[in-house]
Measured scan of single mutants.
Amino acid sequence: MATVKFKYKGEEKEVDISKIKKVWRVGKMISFTYDEGGGKTGRGAVSEKDAPKELLQMLEKQ
């Protein structure tokens, strides 16, 4: 499965596409929420050019 690499609050993070719950576009950025486990929801964003094609496909399906 594909992963998304991004920075959040200065920390490098990587999340599996299957854990992503919601995806939306903000200008040229793709924002998303994902399941961190333990009932927590994380947030992240990547630029449109750095987003994996699976993430862009999720955006188109909504």
Rank of each mutant, 00 (worst) to 15 (best):
M1V: 09
M1P: 13
A2H: 07
A2C: 14
T3K: 14
T3W: 01
V4S: 00
V4M: 01
K5T: 02
K5W: 01
F6Q: 01
F6P: 02
Y8K: 03
Y8N: 04
K9P: 01
K9R: 06
G10C: 06
E11S: 04
E11I: 10
E11W: 03
E12I: 05
E12P: 04
E12V: 13
E12Y: 09
K13P: 00
K13T: 03
E14A: 04
V15K: 01
V15R: 01
D16E: 10
D16Q: 08
I17E: 02
I17P: 02
I17A: 03
I17K: 02
S18G: 08
K19A: 12
K21R: 08
K22V: 13
K22Q: 13
K22P: 01
V23I: 11
V23W: 06
V23E: 01
V23K: 03
W24L: 13
V26Y: 12
V26M: 12
G27D: 15
G27C: 14
M29I: 05
M29H: 13
I30A: 03
I30S: 00
S31H: 14
S31P: 07
F32K: 00
T33W: 12
T33D: 11
T33Q: 11
T33C: 15
T33K: 08
Y34H: 07
E36S: 04
E36K: 04
E36A: 10
E36G: 09
G37E: 07
G37Q: 10
G37L: 07
G37C: 15
G37R: 07
G37D: 05
G38L: 06
G39D: 15
K40V: 14
K40S: 15
T41N: 14
G42D: 14
G42L: 12
G42T: 04
R43I: 07
R43A: 07
R43K: 12
A45M: 06
A45F: 11
V46P: 00
V46T: 09
S47R: 14
E48P: 06
E48I: 05
K49L: 12
D50N: 07
D50K: 11
A51S: 14
A51W: 11
P52G: 05
P52Y: 03
K53D: 14
K53L: 11
K53F: 10
E54D: 10
E54Y: 03
L55A: 01
L56M: 08
Q57R: 04
M58R: 09
L59A: 13
L59R: 05
E60I: 12
E60P: 15
E60H: 13
E60Q: 07
E60G: 08
K61N: 09
K61S: 09
Q62R: 07
Q62M: 14
